[in-house]
Lab assay of single mutants.
Amino acid sequence: TTVHLNGVTYTFPNPEEARKFVEKLAKTLNLKVEVHNGTYHIE
């Protein structure tokens, strides 16, 4: 599972880890999250 954040790409072997990371980040920084083909894009 891949996460794109400010031009940096993070790869998680575990989709659940990626989801938790994204949710925590989005909540902390009040960001918008979009998912395209299983890839998270955070703005």
Rank of each mutant, 00 (worst) to 15 (best):
T1Q: 06
T1C: 15
T2G: 08
T2N: 13
T2W: 11
V3H: 01
V3P: 00
V3Q: 00
H4N: 09
H4E: 06
L5R: 02
N6T: 04
N6Y: 12
G7Q: 06
V8S: 08
V8G: 05
V8M: 09
T9S: 11
T9E: 11
T9C: 15
T9W: 11
Y10F: 13
T11W: 10
T11E: 11
T11N: 09
T11D: 08
F12T: 00
F12Y: 02
F12Q: 00
P13H: 07
P13W: 10
P13M: 10
P13K: 10
N14Q: 05
N14L: 06
N14R: 05
P15Q: 10
P15Y: 07
E16A: 09
E16I: 10
A18S: 02
A18T: 05
R19P: 00
R19H: 07
K20I: 09
F21K: 00
F21S: 00
V22A: 14
V22F: 02
V22L: 04
V22D: 00
E23L: 09
E23W: 07
E23M: 10
K24S: 08
L25A: 03
L25W: 07
L25D: 00
L25S: 01
L25C: 14
A26W: 04
A26P: 02
A26Q: 11
A26L: 12
K27I: 06
K27Q: 09
K27V: 05
K27R: 08
K27P: 04
T28D: 13
T28R: 14
T28H: 14
L29Q: 08
L29V: 06
N30W: 04
N30R: 06
L31V: 14
L31R: 02
L31C: 15
K32T: 07
K32W: 06
K32H: 10
K32A: 04
V33Y: 09
V33H: 01
V33D: 01
V33N: 00
E34M: 11
E34G: 03
V35T: 03
V35E: 05
H36Y: 09
H36N: 04
N37V: 01
N37A: 03
N37W: 03
N37S: 03
G38F: 02
G38K: 02
G38A: 02
G38C: 14
T39E: 15
T39A: 14
H41C: 15
H41D: 05
H41E: 08
H41N: 04
I42Q: 02
I42N: 03
I42D: 04
I42E: 04
I42C: 13
E43G: 09
E43D: 06
E43R: 07
E43C: 15
